[in-house]
Every structure is written in C-alpha cells, then in structure tokens.
Amino acid sequence: MNDLKKITGGIYLVIDPAWELSFTLPRLEQALKAGISTVQIWDHWLPDTSKEGYIEAITALAHEYEVPVFINHHWELLKNSHLDGVHFDAPPSHLPLIQKEIARPFLKGITCGNDLSTVHWATQQGFDYVSFCSMFPTSAADSCEIVQPATVIQARASTPLPIFVAGGISLGNIDSLIPCGIDGVALISGIMKSDDPFKTTIQFKNHFLNHESNAHS
C-alpha cells in the first residue's frame, strides 16, 4: 500500500504473533475476504519468532486486500517494514521523536480506558482512531480495566475520531455496545478461533450494517 488508508471503523482484527503462521494466515485470509477493515499485530512475541519475517507475511497478505496493518507498541519496526501504523497502549512521552525516527507518514491509534484525557490527547495529536479496552472481562485483555459504556458515550460526544471497542466482545453482546456510538470492534479469538472466520466476520459486520440501516430509516 503506497497511500495510507483512512481508518473509519468496521471489524479490526488483532493477530497474536504467538500463533504459527500456518494457523494464522488461512484464517486471516478468510477474514480479509469477508471485509475486515484493519489488522494489528499484538505485542505477544515468542522469544524465537522472527518479527521481521512475521510482519512481512502478515502485511503482504493484508495489502493484497488493501487493508492497513498496525504494530502494537514496537514503533521502531515501522522503519524497515511495510507496516502502516502503530497502536500505542498509552500516550508516548516522545511522539515527535518517534515521528522523526520513522521518517514517513504512518497511522496512529491508542488504547483508552475510563480516563477520557487519553481521548482528548489523541484527538489533539491527530490520531486516526481510539480503542476502548476492555468492555468485558477477557484473558487476552487482562491488563485493561473494565470500561463503562457511559465512558464511551462521553467520548463519542467529545471526539470526531473513529471509536473502536475491544475485550470480551461476542456476537451475543455486541448489540449492547452499538448504541454507545462506536464505529467498530476489535477482535482476536472471536474471529481467529472461530470454526468459520469468514462467516463470523460477516456476522459481526452485519451488526453495524443493520444499525446504520435503522439509523437512516
């Protein structure tokens, strides 16, 4: 991808690099075919994994579908790869230095909790989206506080940035979050450990499409 694709919402798939590529790539391709909007490689590396090789495999496949790929935390990996952006877990104290070091345009996202100051900061810094974690208890987001839906509603009223939600989200509970004004949902096992990643991705997408249809009817 030569031009950075604007983040607007949709299904944001988080990849766990502790999974073998032989497991990940076929499932990722099914999700890409179903229309996920964004991919992130999570900061969960095994000691013997080649970060560069893993990143190259994921970005090559995602870019076939014109889907941007973020790296979690390790912004320095943007310098010599085809990654499109970095997802921060907290506001970095040296963002101008990071931008100078990367020396090319890149997309930026950040995790937010119940403290809306991070949302305000990201808006001022021209970030591309914010993501609230965790909406429900989950082992994959055990370092995140539980975010109250009221926080997301307040954020929607205070920022034009796309808002994603993450953490324990399923087809059974996503409808409770759509009225908060979210633009998308970030998923890991909900898609990657599904028996049918293509079908599951479509089902999640339909919740947003149905909400949009009802909003305009």
Rank of each mutant, 00 (worst) to 15 (best):
L97M: 10
H94I: 04
I102D: 05
L95A: 02
A90F: 14
F106A: 07
N80Q: 14
H82Y: 03
H82D: 12
L78T: 04
Q99E: 15
L78D: 10
P105A: 15
S81A: 08
S81N: 10
Q99Y: 03
P92Q: 07
L78V: 13
D84Q: 13
P96H: 03
K100I: 01
D89E: 15
A90Q: 13
P105N: 15
I98H: 04
I102Q: 06
L95H: 07
H82T: 08
L95G: 08
Q99I: 10
I98V: 14
G85S: 07
H87D: 10
E76I: 00
N80R: 15
A90S: 10
K108P: 06
N80F: 08
K79D: 00
L83G: 00
K100F: 09
L78W: 11
S81G: 11
N80S: 14
P92L: 11
L78Y: 12
F88D: 04
H82F: 09
H82E: 06
R104S: 10
A90G: 01
E76R: 00
K79S: 05
L95Q: 04
D84C: 05
E76C: 00
P91G: 03
L77C: 06
L83I: 01
Q99D: 04
F88T: 02
H87T: 07
H87P: 07
G109Q: 12
P105Q: 12
L77S: 12
P92W: 11
Q99L: 13
L97C: 00
L107Q: 02
R104E: 05
D84M: 09
D84G: 07
K100Y: 13
P91N: 08
L83M: 01
F88N: 07
F106K: 05
K108I: 14
V86E: 02
K79M: 11
E101L: 03
L83F: 00
K79H: 02
L97W: 12
H82M: 04
P91Y: 08
K79I: 13
A103C: 13
A103P: 10
H82R: 11
A103R: 13
Q99K: 15
L77K: 05
S93T: 13
S81L: 09
P105H: 13
F88K: 06
F88Y: 12
A103H: 14
H94C: 08
K108N: 05
P105K: 14
L107A: 06
P91A: 13
I102P: 02
H94L: 06
A90E: 15
I102C: 08
K100W: 08
H87F: 14
K108Y: 07
V86Q: 08
L78M: 10
H94Q: 13
G85L: 07
I98N: 15
E76L: 02
L83P: 00
F106D: 05
Q99A: 08
I98W: 01
E101T: 01
D89N: 14
P92T: 06
V86P: 07
L95D: 03
P105Y: 04
H82P: 00
S81M: 07
E76P: 00
F106Y: 11
S81W: 09
L97E: 15
P96T: 01
E101P: 01
N80M: 01
K108C: 10
L83H: 00
G109N: 14
I102A: 04
N80Y: 09
Q99F: 02
P96L: 06
G85Y: 04
